[in-house]
Simulated assay, not measured.
Amino acid sequence: MPGTVYVDPLHRVAVAGGTHGNEMSGVFLVKHWLKHSSQLERDTVSAVPLLSNPKASEKGVRYYEKDLNRCFTLDILSAPDSPDDPYEVLRAKEINRLLGPRGSANAYDMILDLHNTTSNMGVCLIVSRVHNAVEMHACQYIQTHLPHYNPRIYVYAKPGTDLYSVDSVAKCGLGFELGPQPQGVVRADILQKMKTVIEMTLDFINHLNKGMEFPAFETDTYQCSGQVDFPRSSDGEISAVIHPSLQDKDFSLLHPGDLIFLTLDGQSIPYSGEKPIYPVFINEAAYYEKKIAFILAEKIRVSVPALRRQTH
């Protein structure tokens, strides 16, 4: 087990909601916190609420012109402005100036980004990599204090790929993906869970800032390894839908031969992969346009070193 990681206190924290304008828990909470910011205050940190995509939130759509949560790559952020840039590209650059710049010493210490999914993901904690001790300990703190939520850790970025999400602007980032919740709808149970998870994360940051040491641990993560599209006809139209035996089975082990699709003629299509794997984001509404029926994830056990605040 590796040794202790020492980090500077996390004083500059932002809570972003409405990155996707039809994921209503984040929209509702951030609008609430903009009026009641004291609820995001702790002894050592006062988090800043941010409505990430105002235009999309106003219209109740995922995005206005382009998916904002794919606009924070280094290529996009470093490109010169153009009058032809989509609104979300301009907004990403604005957020990068406000909370970044990405990769700089001036960047915010942490961004918490709030999302909903139509998939049965429960309480899902999203990190970009497993090597950031602050992010992983925040997840562990949530898992320890909210075991009845059964929070799972999902690693969205494949090794060697650039990051693209809004929380990548900060030195540390954590995404929260709660579901199932329909697009454009707010559910009280999901809303309350999200509020509680954010409060727990701020408690963790406060304890870290005050000097609490967090011991090393091991945990399971679900790391993105690929994606599966729907079967399609020769004209590109979807020809089969998610099979009832797969629907709502996010994070359940999928074996070769298990049924994953069903045609309108009643034909079942099995999974043809070579090994068991975990499907996530099953039948996510927003992924139809991305030609993703579900994402494949590998369950990987990781070791995380102890964490403590740096003392100078």
Rank of each mutant, 00 (worst) to 15 (best):
L68I: 14
R70I: 01
C71G: 09
F72W: 07
T73R: 13
I76R: 14
I76T: 09
S78E: 02
A79G: 00
D81M: 08
S82F: 05
P83E: 05
P83I: 06
A92W: 07
I95L: 15
N96M: 04
R97N: 06
R97D: 08
L98C: 14
G100F: 01
G100M: 03
R102L: 04
G103H: 05
A107T: 14
A107M: 05
Y108R: 05
Y108S: 15
I111L: 06
I111S: 01
I111K: 00
L112Y: 01
D113S: 15
H115R: 04
N116V: 05
T117P: 04
T117E: 01
S119H: 01
N120L: 06
M121Q: 12
V123L: 02
C124T: 13
C124P: 00
C124F: 00
C124Q: 14
L125Q: 04
V127A: 13
R129M: 03
H131E: 05
H131T: 13
N132Q: 12
A133Q: 02
V134N: 03
E135W: 00
E135Q: 10
M136V: 02
C139Q: 09
C139F: 00
C139V: 01
Q140A: 14
Y141Q: 06
Y141E: 03
T144A: 13
T144M: 11
H145G: 15
P147L: 07
N150A: 14
P151N: 12
P151M: 08
Y154A: 09
V155T: 02
P159R: 11
T161Y: 08
T161N: 07
D162N: 12
D162V: 10
L163T: 14
L163H: 14
Y164M: 10
Y164P: 12
S165N: 11
V166E: 03
S168W: 00
S168E: 02
V169Y: 00
V169A: 06
K171C: 03
C172E: 02
G173A: 06
G175P: 02
G175W: 00
G175K: 02
G175T: 02
G175I: 03
F176H: 11
L178H: 11
P180N: 08
P180F: 03
Q181R: 07
P182G: 05
Q183I: 14
Q183P: 00
G184T: 11
V185A: 02
R187G: 08
R187S: 12
A188G: 12
A188H: 15
